[in-house]
Computed example of a mutant assay.
Amino acid sequence: MIGRSEEYAKMFELEGQLWWYRNLHERVVTALERQFGDRRDIQILDAGCGTGGMLDFLRRRGYTQLRGIDGSTDAVAFCNERGFSVTFLDLTTLASFEPAIQYDAIICNDVFCYFTESELPPLLLALARRLKSEGILVSNNNAFSVFEGQHDIAVGILRRFVLTDFEQLMPPTGLRIQRATYWSFVLSPMILLMRRWQRLQLRLGWQKPENAQSDVYLPSHWLNETLYRIVRTEQKFMSRTPFGSSLFMVVSSQHPSVK
């Protein structure tokens, strides 16, 4: 999404309110608490932190050792507005960035979709080398190509994933998937219908690719709260679902340390 200033502005404005971000942030904290309990002093890196919404959520939950990196000057500027000291970094150069520093947890949400097939394995290896022996990588990803729509065009998504993609990518890097689930399962028919309508508009020329808009917008309060509660209930009673527009994973090192 680098270079799309208007999309970063929408993200900055809505991350704390929009149902989708709220659910994602809560999923991340649940994963951290499952691994580290009540500890709030763990070292956390948000790799591809965007406008800092995840970092802000973690700070409000009491986490104190927070670090962010992002390859967009717009994102870094918004993070600075939130009071975070975030480093500007092209993630393709992560291997040479502070190689001696390791983290208890690395968060990498909706980032891998911006990397080519040749760029992604080195990035995963660089992330693996930043994990402490008991550390975890928490990652959310765009899932299933059937959900492609104007949103993908608007934010520059290169690809979508299924779990088997990561099951093949992780082992050579020394990473192992602990838990994974697709989500927004209950809402997936609605999302799919919306995305198919978007694709039809593009195919018929009713909408131009250069004018494509992302799905980052705030619906009415009652609808936003209803969608939030639906997905929250899904998370509570369905720990793993077979389908959805996102794939959430908790990943750990296969070895005591990856060198």
Rank of each mutant, 00 (worst) to 15 (best):
Q168A: 15
I191W: 00
P256W: 12
R160F: 02
M238W: 07
L163H: 05
N140W: 02
Q17M: 12
A75Q: 03
P242D: 07
K259W: 06
D56A: 09
N140V: 00
I191C: 00
C49L: 09
E7T: 08
I136P: 04
D56V: 01
L187M: 11
R176F: 09
G52K: 10
R159F: 07
A77P: 06
L192C: 06
E148Q: 09
Q65L: 04
N140P: 01
I153A: 05
L55I: 13
Y21R: 09
P189V: 04
A95E: 14
N109F: 02
L192N: 02
D110L: 15
Q198G: 06
G244K: 01
G244Q: 03
F185H: 03
I177D: 00
G53C: 10
G53I: 12
K10L: 14
G71I: 08
Q35R: 15
E210H: 03
T233W: 08
W20Q: 03
E7W: 05
R196N: 06
D70P: 03
S220W: 05
T73Q: 12
L202I: 02
G83E: 07
W222K: 09
Q198N: 09
I191G: 00
A128W: 11
T226N: 00
E13H: 15
W206G: 02
G52I: 05
K10I: 02
S139F: 05
T241F: 03
S96N: 05
D56M: 07
W206A: 06
V250F: 07
Q150V: 00
V162N: 13
A105C: 11
D165W: 02
E119R: 06
L204R: 13
L200E: 12
Q213L: 11
L223H: 02
F161I: 10
T30Y: 03
E117N: 15
L120G: 08
S85C: 11
R232V: 01
A143P: 02
V251L: 12
A75P: 01
T164D: 14
R232Q: 14
L223C: 01
L247S: 07
N140S: 09
D104E: 14
D41H: 11
G71T: 08
D46M: 10
L218H: 03
G83I: 10
S96E: 06
Y21C: 10
H151L: 03
G52A: 08
T30A: 15
L55M: 15
L58S: 04
I2H: 13
V216S: 04
S239T: 07
E119C: 07
P171Q: 09
W20E: 02
K10N: 11
R179F: 01
D90Q: 04
Q207C: 11
L202R: 08
Y103H: 12
I107W: 04
F185R: 02
